[in-house]
């Protein structure tokens, strides 16, 4: 297969499956129908069915991946639009997110310790609520494995957005701001993408939560690992 054909197939295929998944989600707004989950699953099934290795798919779809960068940059737009609100809530935001990051590191460590997994895997699990590129870097500097860290980042991201609607009902998180912080602090950029469903205010605090989590975790995880190993 030539590269052009591969790129065409991987990109057009990904976009078509994504459009279909969005359409499906609009018809049945059920958390398990989240486009990130359905699109990912359908593509994995197709790749396995046709015996296509992931690396070849990624070669073809990498320009889509490349757009993730400017999309994260674009989060500055809702943040700017909502800057007055963010400034007003800066103290509760900072405290809530800082405590959230600490809880994530400690419970992640605790569960991994109880399960008795090797230290490198335990360390890779700590930055799970941080956006992928930062999580990989944190895992690297702390003695974990970046590729394994990505798996946990995906579980926290996709799992968090699927569970979020149930969770908000169960523990009564009703404000759009609370929902945004919850999603950004627990499920990084995948959570922030989901928070757009709750409006621009939710998306703005969610992007703040995601960014602050990344900043806090990049300092706290290496320190935590240093003192626990």
């Amino acid at each position: 297969m030539t590269n052009t054909v591969l790129t065409m197939l991987a990109s057009v295929g990904t976009i078509l499956i994504y459009i279909g998944a969005r359409y499906g989600y609009r018809r049945v707004t059920y958390p398990f129908m989240m486009p990130i989950l359905t699109t990912t699953l359908v593509i994995i099934i197709i790749l396995i069915a046709f015996g296509m290795p992931y690396q070849r798919y990624m070669d073809g779809a990498q320009w889509i991946d490349e757009l993730l960068g400017p999309a994260v940059v674009a989060l500055a737009f809702p943040l700017y639009q909502q800057r007055a609100m963010i400034k007003c809530y800066s103290l509760p935001l900072l405290i809530g997110i800082f405590v959230g990051v600490c809880v994530g590191i400690m419970t992640g460590f605790g569960f991994a310790w109880l399960l008795g997994v090797p230290e490198s895997i335990r360390t890779s699990l700590l930055p799970k609520s941080v956006t992928t590129p930062v999580a990989m870097e944190i895992a690297q500097v702390s003695g974990g494995t970046p590729a394994i860290a990505v798996v946990f980042v995906m579980v926290a991201g996709i799992g968090g957005v699927i569970l979020a609607p149930y969770l908000f009902k169960w523990v009564k998180i009703r404000s759009d701001l609370g929902k945004g912080i919850s999603l950004g602090a627990g499920s990084h950029a995948i959570g922030t993408a989901k928070s757009l469903e709750y409006g621009e205010r939710a998306a703005a605090v969610s992007s703040v939560a995601m960014t602050l989590s990344a900043l806090f975790a990049s300092v706290l995880v290496p320190l935590f690992v240093y003192f626990t190993s």
């Binding site: 419970t107 699990l125 946990f152 569970l163 404000s175 912080i181």
Partner: peptide, 26 residues
Amino acid sequence: GLLLIPAVLVSTVLVMIISAKIFEYV
């Protein structure tokens, strides 16, 4: 490794609840 999935989910859920609740409290 499979057991780490629910562990990561529970930990994530705790982060989500506690960060939002602390925010609302403060």
